Every structure is written in C-alpha cells, then in structure tokens.
Amino acid sequence: MKLIKHDNVTPLHPPMEAREYKYLKHLASAMSLYLENPHGTELVCILGSGYEKDNRHALETWVAYHRNEVFETRLQGRSPLHHLIEKLENLLVN
C-alpha cells in the first residue's frame, strides 16, 4: 500500500478566499491594461500604500481595498470592472 503525501495533492476546489484573491488580481490586471501603463510608478502614491513597486501592484492594493464593493456590485448584476474604472477616473480627475 502506497501512501499519498498531503503536500503533493492539489485540492479540486480552492478555498473561497483564494478564488476571491485571484478574481481581484484579474480585475487589477484588466484595469492596468485599461490605463496602458502598468510599469510606471506614478500611481503608487495615489492608489497604493507606498510600498508597491509599480502601478500594477498599486492597482492590486487599491482593488483589494475595494473588495466589498466589487462583490456587492457583482451581486447587483453590474460589472465590477466598469464600476472600478469609473471610480478610478473620478479619483484621478479630482
């Protein structure tokens, strides 16, 4: 009889937190493409905590901060991406 080590087994259903994290990361990536400058650093001081290395990581921090809004928007049947882009544009204009 051969035993399977627990470390070598990948669960079929990742935990909810991991799926949420991945979804938020994809949203930040889409927003980064929308802004067309993911490797600059000008948004770090506006969107991030100040420790991010580029705009993309600052967007990930900002999207994670708005996590509850993202999932509420999804429950309402609206696109969280459009909601966040609108929110970001308002923030950058003001």
Results as ranks from 00 to 15, higher is better:
L75I: 09
K53P: 06
R67L: 03
L75Y: 02
N55S: 13
W62M: 00
T61G: 01
H57M: 10
D54P: 04
E72D: 04
G48H: 07
E72G: 00
K53F: 05
R74D: 03
K53V: 10
E69D: 14
Q76H: 14
N68C: 06
A64H: 12
N55E: 09
T73M: 11
G50T: 08
T73Y: 00
A58Q: 06
F71C: 06
V70L: 09
E72W: 03
A64D: 07
V70K: 11
Q76A: 13
D54I: 01
D54V: 01
N68L: 13
Q76W: 06
G50C: 01
K53M: 15
N55Q: 11
R56L: 15
Q76T: 05
T61L: 00
R56I: 04
V70A: 13
T61Q: 02
R67D: 11
E69W: 04
T61K: 06
F71I: 09
E72L: 14
H66D: 01
H66F: 06
A64M: 09
Y51H: 13
R56E: 10
D54E: 09
Y65R: 15
L59D: 07
E60A: 10
T61F: 12
R74S: 08
E60C: 01
E72P: 00
F71W: 14
N55G: 02
D54R: 05
W62K: 06
H57Q: 14
H66Q: 02
Q76G: 05
V63H: 04
T73W: 06
K53Q: 15
H57L: 13
V70G: 01
A64T: 14
V63Q: 10
L59F: 05
E69M: 07
Q76S: 12
H57P: 00
S49N: 10
L59I: 05
R74C: 04
F71Y: 13
R56N: 01
N68I: 15
V63W: 05
T61V: 07
L59S: 01
N55C: 03
K53E: 11
Q76Y: 02
W62F: 08
F71S: 10
E52H: 06
Y65G: 00
W62E: 08
D54N: 15
S49R: 15
R56C: 09
Q76L: 13
E72Y: 07
A58R: 07
W62T: 08
L75T: 08
Q76P: 00
Y51Q: 10
K53W: 11
R56P: 00
K53G: 01
N68D: 13
F71R: 04
A58H: 06
L59T: 02
R74I: 13
F71D: 13
G48E: 03
R67N: 03
L47R: 12
H57Y: 13
H57T: 02
Y65S: 04
H66R: 03
V70E: 13
H66V: 05
G48C: 04
W62S: 09
